[in-house]
Structure formats: structure tokens, C-alpha cells
């Protein structure tokens, strides 16, 4: 276990600890990659939560797994598998969402697609016997051992994704909040939805190479859900979502560096704790406001 090898414990001197945190190149790469991933996930995740596409987001991230397995089996570079499968998955999911067959049919189709993806992934892994020991890292990823080339590629994808979202942000918010009115005003709702899914697939494919297929989801949904609890204003919400994603990623990486436990555990636990705190806090504030509003009427 590489994590065990670097376990040194805290010196409790913040400057020394920060210094040690960036003293290894692999840790610098991990911090760079984590920052890019968190930024991208924070932006796209805000729209995922707004559009109630959590299930779709999770399915896309699962589709990355057979992509990687298929690429390994065929002897192709992993990135080809990730991008190819995620793009096809996004198109299929776009077709499911657009057919307007009602909520229950949609949820059944998405679920079946995800089950198929997992079945294919396991099939490919079984056909390629050697990979089995690497299955865990395929599913759960590793922040260690990221190369500077990967960081560069990640940066390119992130810039492409975020600039697409920035360009279509206004119509996309409109189409997500009220699809019917947006359609009547001439916004290409379907095309926007499909474009967003493709971009989401792209960012999920890129992210899952670092975080593993299962954990993309944590950065995508939880910080964004927390931001949506705090504000409904789009600009502020996206900024909050990015800020929270960055915060939990940095803290998670640092905690993982100074302990023996995996970074995925820290990132998910921190973001879930924040979400629960915000929900509880908002519940308390809401109750107080409700009683305050009620009191003068009684008097």
C-alpha cells in the first residue's frame, strides 16, 4: 500500500505540514488534478442538481467502468474507452430523457442501462483475467501516481467543459427551470439537454480516470446539493458549489496524506457532513421564521 509508505503523521506545525504536503511530486500532481476535477465537477454538478439528473449522473459515471475495462481488453489506451463509452452513454441517456414517456419508464430505462454497463464491465474484466487485481482501482480510483501529462489533459478537458457551460449557462438555466416556457420562447431545449449530457459525459470520463468510476459522483452531487440548499441564485450557487468542491478535495487530499485511509473516504465524508449540517441548519432557520411570521397574526 503506497499510502502506508508515506504515512508520517502530523507535526502540528502548519507551515512544516504544508511544506511536507507539497514536497513530493506525486502529491503536487494529485493536488493539481484534484483542483481541476473539483472545479469542473462543481460547475457541472450545479446543473446536474438543478436539472434533477442525479441518477443520470451516476449512470454516466458507472458507464466509465466498462469503458475502461473494454479498452484494457482491446489493448487500447484507457482514455479511448472512457471517452467512447461515456459519449455513447450520454447519447443513449439523452434519447431516454427526450422521449417523454413518463417518470417511471424513464427510471426503468436508466436503471437497465446502468445494469447493462456494470454487467458488460464485469464481463470484460472476467474475459481479461489479469486485470482483476486492478478492479478496485478501476472502480474507486487512486489519486496517487498521476502524471503531469494526465494533469495537462485534465486541464484541457476542464477548460472545454467549463467554457461550454459558461456559453450556454443562461439558456440552460432557463430550459432547466421551466422547459415548456423556454421551448415556447424558442430555446432549443432538447439540443441543450443533449449537449449538456455530452459535456457531463466528457467531464465524468476524465474525472473517473483519477477518482475511479464510483467516486466521481461524490464530487458531482454533494457540494452542488449543499449550494442549492444555501442559495437559489445561479451565479452565487455555482461559485459556492465550486468553492465547496475545492475545499473538500483539498482537505480530503491533505487528510489522506497524513493518515492511512483512502482519499475517497475523506472527500465523501466531508462533503456529506457539510450537506447534513446545512440541511439541519436550514431546517432550524425555517422553523424560526415560520413561527416569527405566525406570531404577529395571532396578536
Amino acid at each position: 500500500m503506497p499510502e502506508a509508505a508515506i504515512f508520517q503523521g502530523l507535526s502540528w506545525n502548519p507551515l512544516t505540514d504544508l511544506d511536507r504536503l507539497v514536497s513530493y511530486p506525486f502529491m503536487v500532481h494529485a493536488l493539481e488534478a484534484g483542483t481541476i476535477v473539483a472545479f469542473m465537477a462543481g460547475v457541472t454538478g450545479w446543473f446536474v442538481v438543478l436539472r434533477r439528473q442525479t441518477f443520470v449522473g451516476h449512470t454516466l459515471s458507472v458507464i466509465a467502468f466498462p469503458g475502461a475495462a473494454a479498452a484494457t481488453l482491446a489493448g487500447l489506451p484507457l482514455a479511448v474507452g472512457y471517452f467512447g463509452f461515456c459519449a455513447c452513454g450520454a447519447l443513449a441517456l439523452g434519447g431516454i430523457g427526450g422521449s417523454r414517456r413518463g417518470l417511471s419508464a424513464e427510471s426503468a430505462s436508466i436503471g437497465s442501462l446502468q445494469a447493462l454497463a456494470l454487467a458488460l464491465g464485469f464481463l470484460f474484466v472476467s474475459l481479461y483475467h489479469g486485470i482483476l487485481s486492478g478492479l478496485d482501482s478501476l472502480l474507486f480510483g487512486t489519486f496517487l501516481g498521476i502524471t503531469s501529462r494526465q494533469v495537462l489533459l485534465l486541464l484541457v478537458v476542464a477548460v472545454a467543459t467549463v467554457s461550454f457551460v459558461a456559453v450556454v449557462a443562461r439558456p440552460l438555466v432557463f430550459a432547466s427551470v421551466d422547459a415548456d416556457v423556454a421551448r415556447a420562447r424558442g430555446v432549443p431545449v432538447r439540443l441543450l439537454g443533449l449537449g449538456f449530457l455530452l459535456v457531463l459525459g466528457l467531464s465524468v470520463a476524465e474525472t473517473s480516470q483519477i477518482t475511479g468510476a464510483l467516486l466521481v459522483f461524490a464530487l458531482l452531487v454533494t457540494p452542488a446539493a449543499t449550494a442549492h440548499e444555501l442559495t437559489s441564485r445561479p451565479g452565487l450557487g455555482i461559485a459556492l458549489s465550486v468553492g465547496l468542491a475545492l475545499g473538500v478535495t483539498w482537505l480530503g487530499l491533505a487528510l489522506a496524506y497524513f493518515s492511512t485511509y483512502p482519499v475517497g473516504f475523506y472527500v465523501t465524508s466531508l462533503s456529506f457532513a457539510l450537506y447534513v449540517l446545512v440541511r439541519l441548519g436550514r431546517g432550524a432557520v425555517g422553523r424560526r421564521r415560520a413561527t416569527a411570521r405566525f406570531a404577529p397574526e395571532v396578536a
Binding site: H58, F140, F217, A218, V221, Y261, G264, V267, T268, S269
Partner: peptide, 25 residues
């Protein structure tokens, strides 16, 4: 609702990773 499920779910996966790492060790 799906956002609540999603957040709980992501955390569960994180816990799963933790146990998996301890288990594998």
C-alpha cells in the same frame, strides 16, 4: 428525493472505499 438519496449514496460509497482499503490490507 433524488438529491437526498444521491448525497447519502455518495457518502456510503466513500465508507465502502474505506472498509475496502482496510479489508484489502
Amino acid at each position: 428525493d433524488d438529491v437526498t438519496i444521491g448525497s447519502l449514496f455518495a457518502w456510503t460509497l466513500g465508507l465502502g472505499v474505506l472498509f475496502l482499503s482496510i479489508f484489502a490490507r
